[in-house]
């Protein structure tokens, strides 16, 4: 790992995909709302419980806003995945913004580089089962989250 490049876990999807959707742009606030609806619909299709749906949609909302506000816009892809035992929802958020210079700091509760509460990354990480982030200064940020049905 080169200096300045931080990876908590590989951001490439490894779970077999069952149902794929197209890439959804995140360039306006309306897109953030749309992302919530798209993730909700897919979570319903995957027969996720209401609490898990709510956690996944909330995590997606946080990450979509990060993509828009800190990443300067980007996109999300969301798929239904299957690991042989359980189904789940995987969402990947990609931006080509300034990147995250200090990942440990960015994942700290309450720390924010902007005007938010600093719960976007740390909070959404707690809401999902798998969380991976890849970012390097100047090369943007990719966040991948997976939530499995119980």
């Amino acid at each position: 790992m080169s200096a300045g490049r931080w990876t908590v876990a590989p951001a490439g999807g490894v779970e077999p995909t069952v149902e794929r959707t197209e890439r959804h742009p995140i360039v306006t606030e309306a897109d953030v709302v749309r992302v919530r609806q798209i993730v909700r619909n897919l979570a319903v299709t995957a027969k996720m419980s209401l609490v898990d749906q709510t956690k996944m949609v909330t995590a997606a909302s946080e990450l979509a806003r990060n993509t828009l506000v800190y990443g300067g816009g980007g996109s999300m892809t969301v798929d239904i995945v299957d690991n042989g035992r359980r189904r789940g929802i995987r969402a990947v958020f990609v931006d080509s913004g300034p990147g995250i210079p200090d990942m440990d700091l960015a994942l700290t509760d309450g720390w924010t580089s902007g005007s938010g509460l600093g719960l976007g990354l740390s909070g959404s990480r707690r809401l999902v089962d798998d969380f991976a982030i890849e970012s390097s200064p100047g090369a943007g940020t990719t966040v991948r989250i997976v939530k499995w049905s119980r």
Partner: peptide
Amino acid sequence: MRPAVAITLVELGL
């Protein structure tokens, strides 16, 4: 507030 929202808020840390 819906119960699922309350559960999520606590886990979010809000």
